[in-house]
Design a binder for these strands. Structure first.
Length: 473
RNA sequence: GGCGCUAUCGUCUAGGGGACUAGGACGGGGCCCUCUCAAGGCCCAAACACGGGUUCGAAUCCCGUUAGCGCUACCA
């Protein structure tokens, strides 16, 4: 048994979509699982819409996700000569024919009988040799169409089981444009044959292309590969995921502070399950457990809430040290300069309350520089509720903390002083703590206040408390 | 319209003739912990689309209905 060869073949006409990323992931997983080869092919035959920039973004997105390729990227445009030769070969074998219909004539046919019901009627297939020669002599432009055989076109799909089409339900589609370049289905089959691809793992939107491609394999005299059609990814409204659903590009999630490992884990579980209750899967187990047969046959809704939860799982498992580079990078783009300050304790303090690097950096910044925005609604409500006591309690705390020397400034000592001061003034602990939290962060949410004070540091803490007390009431 | 695919909690899913009183996770609700919010622990609500078969027995197999989705270009 020769090792499988799979490919991921995006067209560089847009960003790397999460659906495409998952297709790439499944291919990659299958290659890793079987010891096969993952080939990357860029399908740039649509010259109008393909760009170098899109190609770069797709490559970057794949790398970011940790999906590497054993061969490629090969650019489909480089194979134009072979595509054309294959079309000519089909022509010579009478498996294809020249079509001299103009776009206008085709549009006319389309409009008659309703656009939805249109199928090319095959009129040029019936042209006799003389008629063809006459048009050729006049240099009439032509496309090449396949002569679709009237036979069963079926395959055993690795995820769906047997799928069958009838040749007479399909029309004689164009394989070569009048400018001599190949149409998608021909280019794909020609390249997959050339690259000796054994397993085509792609989106469900291609199942209706498959019988056309099988017809091409047969006409070209080659055995079709194994096909595996993976389900579509939908938005929360059950419609195909698109821009109006918000973030759909892999790069968007990178921007939002999602970990590649979390994204990969989440994507893998969208339409695939290792069986049982497993959710968080390290790469090695993902590879170990992966199989085409376990892929779901129904579409899956992309749930960003669960993605964030999963990211939070990876975040809590990560050490502060491993997070530092990403946090520094994020702080920098926020315009926060931590200087020589050791950020690890700050990261540890807020890690558990964050789901993304973005949220984490935001909280680190607050501890470094104080509230970055106006107090939130709950903070305002608290201040209003406590009224004069807000500033008064703040001063009580500040006075108590003033007595703590820098050398004793730690969570344990601070807690003792706080409790002592609250006791002495007959304050509920919460009424003393919450205003401090608001003074230091502008919110009513944080780690325990004594720990917050310890991470923020003595001088900054006291300054913020006094300032809040002064502007309070 | 034609052709094809699909159907288990709101969402991701387990299950593949008896282990099902249908399991887990996200999200939701409650309780515990607690200075707040998270995290964590415990608990609750929440699904086999419908109708026929086959079978002693169907979420599971078959047929039909319904619904959703995909494709139906000299796009990919």
């Amino acid at each position: 048994m020769t090792p499988p060869r799979v490919r991921f073949a995006p067209s560089p006409t847009g960003y790397l979509h999460v659906g495409g990323a998952r297709t790439a992931l499944f291919n990659w997983l299958y290659a890793r699982k079987t010891g096969g080869t993952f080939v990357l092919r860029i399908e740039d035959t649509d010259r109008e819409r393909s760009t170098e920039a899109h190609t770069q973004v797709i490559l970057d997105g794949l790398r970011w996700l940790g999906i590497d390729w054993g061969e490629g990227p090969v650019f489909q445009g480089a194979n134009a000569t072979r595509h054309r030769a294959d079309a000519e070969r089909l022509l010579a074998a009478r498996a294809a024919y020249r079509c001299f219909c103009t776009r206008e004539e085709l549009d006319l046919q389309r409009n008659r009988g309703g656009a939805a019901a249109f199928r090319y009627d095959g009129r040029c297939r019936r042209l006799d040799a003389d008629a063809v020669q006459a048009r050729l002599a006049q240099r009439t432009p032509y496309t090449i169409r396949i002569a679709m055989p009237d036979e069963e076109l079926a395959w055993d799909d690795a995820v769906h089981g047997r799928i069958s089409f009838q040749g007479h339900d399909l029309d004689d589609f164009v394989i070569l444009r009048s400018d001599g370049t190949a149409i998608y289905n021909l280019a794909v089959v020609s390249d997959d044959i050339d690259m000796r691809i054994t397993h085509v793992i792609r989106g469900d939107d291609h199942v209706s292309n498959t019988p056309k491609q099988i017809a091409l394999y047969r006409a070209l005299g080659h055995q079709p590969p194994v096909f595996a059609h993976v389900p579509m990814i939908l938005g929360t409204d059950g419609k195909k995921l698109s821009k109006r659903h918000g973030a759909t590009a892999v790069g968007d999630y990178q921007q939002l502070g999602i970990f590649p490992a979390a994204m990969r884990n989440f994507l893998a579980l969208l339409g695939w399950s290792p069986g049982g209750d497993r959710e968080i899967l390290p790469e090695s187990e993902m590879i170990e457990l992966f199989s085409l047969e376990a892929i779901q046959s129904k579409p899956a809704v992309f749930d960003t809430v669960k993605l964030e939860w999963m990211n939070g799982q990876y975040l809590s498992a990560a050490t502060a040290a491993s997070l530092l580079p990403a946090v520094r990078h994020q702080l920098e783009s926020m315009g926060v300069a931590p200087g020589a300050r050791d950020l690890a304790p700050l990261v540890d303090a807020v890690k558990i309350r964050s789901r993304t690097i973005l949220q984490l950096a935001e909280q680190v910044a607050v501890r470094l520089e104080g509230p970055r925005r106006a107090p939130d609604d709950k903070a305002v409500a608290l201040r209003r509720k406590l009224a004069d006591a807000f500033a008064a309690n703040l001063n009580v705390v500040a006075d108590a903390l003033d007595a703590v020397p820098e050398s004793d400034w730690n969570a344990g000592t601070i807690l003792e002083r706080l409790k002592g001061a609250a006791d002495a003034h007959g304050l509920k602990l919460g009424d003393a703590m919450q205003p401090v939290r608001v003074a230091l962060t502008g919110t009513t949410v944080s780690e325990p206040v004594n720990e917050l004070l310890a991470t923020v540091g003595r001088s900054a803490s006291l300054a913020r408390i006094r300032a809040a007390a002064a502007t309070g009431a």
